[in-house]
């Protein structure tokens, strides 16, 4: 049980990572948000049979994770949570789509499998990109960047408060579960008959707590804007970062590099 509480408390890990100081963390939030947007658009724009063309896009998250010194295991754990959904979406492709496709000149796979893997890869890449953005920028700074992009304030506020609410909820879950387990004579898990009252309790408690947090924010002059302090200027390095990745993504989008290398090697 304590294990579960420990992992629940880990929810704020992304926030903590965002406070690091690395090259990536120092890049202007707006630039990182824009780069991520371009990346997402490029990833999604590949059609479902273009598996090999997607491969070079893996480098983006990998390089950022390495440069920003992000521990990989907790990140992958968070990906696992969404994995069932992605697999669920692509699951039926191999069953229904049997058209043979040429991957490399000497390998043939059915189109269903290709599209399954490309959905899987796209899902993994988009989620990874989002997680990496949060872990290198932090939610408050992302919100500030969205503000600079003239996203309406209501949406930004919604995003921020939802994000806060999740951690409030999870902390309350942690406390409740701990209190329960201390009084349940070493039983594993939570007895089914207690589920109803526990979840009801939780809902009320989190709502009240969220409300109190919101009140205390208002008491300190919160009027709908999250201020993150000194706003950095966009510098040459930031622009280079953006154009660098932007060019890379565009090149990958229009030239299938793995296929080109493949055909170079086989001399076709």
């Amino acid at each position: 049980m304590s294990n579960m509480i420990a992992s629940l408390y880990n929810i704020r890990l992304l926030d903590e990572l965002a406070e690091k100081r690395t090259i990536i963390h120092n890049i202007h939030p707006l630039i990182k948000v824009l780069t991520t947007c371009v990346y997402l658009i490029v990833v999604v724009s590949f059609n479902k049979y273009e598996l090999s063309g997607l491969l070079p896009l893996v480098f983006y998250p990998v390089i950022i994770i390495a440069l920003a010194d992000i521990p990989i295991v907790p990140l992958l754990k968070r990906m696992l949570v969404v994995a069932p959904f992605i697999i669920g979406i692509g699951l039926f492709n191999p069953l229904f789509d049997h058209s043979p496709m040429v991957v490399l000149p000497w390998i043939q796979i059915s189109g269903g499998w290709i599209s399954f893997f490309s959905i899987l890869l796209k899902g993994v890449l988009t989620i990874l990109a989002a997680l990496v953005l949060i872990a290198t920028t932090g939610m408050t700074r992302i919100a500030a960047a969205l503000g600079m992009m003239r996203v309406p304030r209501v949406f930004i506020l919604q995003l921020l408060l939802t994000y806060r609410y999740i951690s409030v909820l999870i902390e309350e879950v942690g406390r409740t579960v701990r209190a329960y387990s201390l009084r349940s004579r070493g039983e594993k898990g939570i007895r089914f008959s207690d589920w109803g009252s526990l979840t009801g309790q939780l809902l009320i408690r989190t709502l009240e707590r969220a409300q109190r947090v919101y009140h205390s924010m208002c008491c300190r002059g919160f009027a709908g804007d999250y201020n993150v302090g000194s706003e950095k200027r966009i510098q040459i390095g930031d622009i280079l970062y953006f154009t660098g990745w932007g060019l890379y993504f565009v090149v990958i989008r229009y030239f299938n590099i793995p296929a080109a290398i493949g055909s170079l090697i086989t001399g076709v």
């Binding site: 109190r212 804007d225 201020n227 993150v228 302090g229």
Partner: peptide
């Protein structure tokens, strides 16, 4: 106002940011 439960009053990622929240507003 200082609340009865400090958990209600601290919601940012660092103590510094939390204390700065009001003045920045």
């Amino acid at each position: 106002m200082v609340f009865q439960d400090p958990d209600d009053q601290l919601f940012m990622t660092t103590v510094y940011d939390d204390v700065a929240f009001g003045p920045r507003n």
